[in-house]
Amino acid sequence: MARYLMQRIGLALLVCVAVSLLAFTLLNASGDVAIAVAGEEATAAQIEAIREDLGLNRPLAVRYGEWLASAVQGDFGNSLFFRQPVAELIAYRLPNTMTLAVMALGVMLALSVPLGVAAALKPNSIIDRAAMLIAVLGQAMPNFWFALILIVVFSLTLGIAPPSGSATLGHFVLPAIALGYYSTPPMMRLIRQGMIEALSSDYIRTARAKGISGWKVVFKHALRNAVIPVVSLTAVQFGNMLGGSVVIETVFGIQGLGFLAWESISRMDLPVVQAVLLIVAVFYVVMVLLADFINAWLDPRIRTQ
């Protein structure tokens, strides 16, 4: 087990370094930061002075090495637009994004697990088709459009939920529903397929032949084996929620990492964009790593292979 864990941790570290290098290189190749900071009416001398002040005239490899060394210590430099340390901006915005992602994950699991199990118990029935219809609608609707519908219905018409902001947990209810429902279809289909395969296996037939109650067979035996790929997909979906919350945070006016990334990209604030990309990538890799550990604990065959 220890060897398996060390291999996965080493691979995760390599992925983080590769993502940081790719993000740093592509962002620096996307445009001239000095021109964006100086403005369109700046002279060549002024642009060159800004480039010298920001260290943009040094080799890219040197700048990347210095940035990565500082980022490991929690220093991401200063924002070019907000004029404050990037670490402070992230520390202020990250809790809102984490709250949204956790609540959206809860919405996704609350929808996908019952729907997937119900569809697997009655395949090709009305229940199965209704569950698949709900999943198809969730994947077909753009999340920003669904978010706007939620605002119109529950905020403007019924007045039971705030339309924007992040002051209380109530402000995250509608955004979490919009983000969680959009992530439900793949999870529901995976649970349905896993449960169908588990329920048709020999050990389930043996358990039923021994007189074990139906619900105990479903939830204790079948669902335990069907949940292994679900753990991995849950980790991936949580990472997607962290990185893909830009639209939802913008629609609902949530001051999170997604909205911060959108603001920074529109203003060519590269230090902030680089830091956000690295933070999201690290969270994504950590979640996948935790999913691997949980799967190895649930299924010993994974760690022995």
Rank of each mutant, 00 (worst) to 15 (best):
6 M>G: 11
144 F>T: 02
14 L>I: 15
10 G>T: 08
228 I>V: 11
158 L>G: 04
243 G>W: 14
37 V>L: 15
5 L>A: 14
9 I>P: 08
119 A>V: 05
209 A>W: 01
16 C>K: 06
94 L>D: 06
101 A>H: 04
155 S>D: 05
93 R>G: 02
217 V>R: 01
169 L>V: 08
264 S>Y: 02
38 A>R: 12
12 A>W: 02
250 T>R: 09
212 I>E: 08
79 S>K: 05
301 R>N: 11
235 A>F: 08
286 V>H: 04
51 R>S: 15
179 L>H: 12
19 V>C: 12
68 L>V: 13
278 L>Q: 14
50 I>K: 14
123 P>S: 10
140 A>W: 08
41 E>P: 07
299 D>C: 00
40 E>I: 15
117 V>Q: 00
167 A>T: 03
255 Q>F: 11
124 N>K: 15
260 L>T: 02
232 S>I: 05
255 Q>D: 15
42 A>Y: 13
60 L>F: 05
262 W>E: 14
91 A>Q: 13
119 A>N: 05
64 Y>M: 04
140 A>R: 06
119 A>S: 10
188 M>G: 03
135 A>E: 01
303 R>E: 11
184 T>F: 13
154 F>E: 07
43 T>D: 09
127 I>H: 03
152 V>L: 09
234 T>Q: 04
3 R>G: 06
175 P>H: 07
210 K>A: 12
126 I>D: 06
174 L>A: 01
284 Y>H: 14
224 R>A: 06
84 Q>F: 02
159 G>Y: 12
102 V>H: 04
228 I>W: 10
